[in-house]
């Protein structure tokens, strides 16, 4: 049984009447990558910031590496790496100087050159922070988060605002952390990020955990099926018979979706209706369920709503 490096019990935080975090409990085992997934305002960042010591908790317990300090201690911070949602550094320091600066604040620090290589920032090591692109800045933020060779790393929405290429590049770097055996906690509202990187996923909504498990467990908890998506050759009026099929949903203009556990049977029903009602089915896609669908089923809303 792996060592539990973080255990959160009944954590609560209110802002006025709003329950930002409402009784959250979870634990993370050494070497695991945990993704905290949820829409904006779900309470992900507040939870993580309370664990990092940036926010005061109203109540609840946080156990770090088997100990329950009243407030986060310097010893815990020495073992913890943090990448905040807003990556802010001293603008006029270079990449190398920034890594050396943060390294100098810890007892143990990795060499800046090692981190620069690891995050592919070699060409930019002498560039000032203010001249970095969004992707480079995020890679620097991740590099800074591991400057102290931490046992546990918190990455708060590390790829928000990045283009797909920069995002994939950063995913590779985060996967490397996993290979190194680091415990990683990522908060994100990108389901792909959670699917690609996480061993375990927690879904937050309105300050509460609404689901938890591996990707497969979460998908299975909702349905073992797939989705058939299609368009019609006529856009004026959807045949009533189609609308009556359970789970039928218009996902965008002239694009419809049907959940199914038997694709052949569902396709046969759709084609029968099209023959009877005299229209054609176009652009049929059959896809597996994903986390977006899980969230949709659990909350009735999309992750990006």
């Amino acid at each position: 049984m792996s060592e539990c490096v973080l255990k959160v019990t009944d954590l609560k935080k209110r802002y006025g009447e709003v329950r930002a975090v409402d009784g959250i409990s979870f634990e993370v085992k050494k070497g695991d990558v945990l993704a905290i997934l949820g829409p904006n305002g779900a309470g992900k960042s507040t939870t993580v910031e309370m664990i990092e010591g940036l926010r005061k908790k109203d109540s609840g317990e946080i156990e770090y590496f088997g100990e329950k300090p009243v407030h986060i201690t310097k010893e815990v911070k020495e073992r913890m790496g943090v990448q905040l949602q807003k990556s802010a550094f001293l603008d006029n320091l270079t990449v190398k100087e920034t890594l050396e600066f943060f390294g100098g604040l810890y007892k143990k620090a990795l060499k800046s050159s090692e981190l620069i290589d690891m995050m592919s920032l070699g060409e930019k090591q002498k560039s000032k922070v203010k001249n970095l692109s969004g992707g480079q800045l995020q890679r620097l933020a991740v590099a800074v988060s591991i400057v102290n060779d931490p046992d546990i790393v918190f990455l708060d929405e590390p790829t928000t605002g990045l283009d797909p290429q920069a995002r994939r590049m950063l995913w590779e770097k985060i996967e490397n952390l996993k290979v190194q055996g680091k415990t990683v906690i990522i908060t994100t509202h990108y389901m792909e990020e959670a699917e690609v990187l996480a061993d375990e996923i927690i879904i937050f909504d309105h300050g509460k955990i609404i689901a938890r498990g591996t990707l497969q467990e979460l998908l299975d908890s909702v349905s073992k099926g797939k989705y058939v998506e299609f368009s019609l050759d006529k856009v004026d009026g959807i045949p009533e018979e189609l609308k009556k099929i359970e789970g039928f949903k218009e996902i965008e203009k002239n694009r419809y979706s049907l959940p199914t556990e038997d694709v052949e049977k569902t396709l046969s029903i759709i084609f029968n209706i099209s023959h009877k009602e005299n229209f054609y089915i176009e652009n049929i896609t059959i896809r597996k369920m994903n986390l977006e669908d899980v969230f949709l089923v659990l909350t009735g809303r999309s992750l990006r709503d």
């Binding site: 990092e52 940036l54 911070k77 913890m80 905040l84 802010a88 550094f89 604040l105 810890y106 800074v144």
Partner: peptide, 9 residues
Amino acid sequence: VLSRISVTP
């Protein structure tokens, strides 16, 4: 920047 620094020891 201060938040970033305050999460260090």
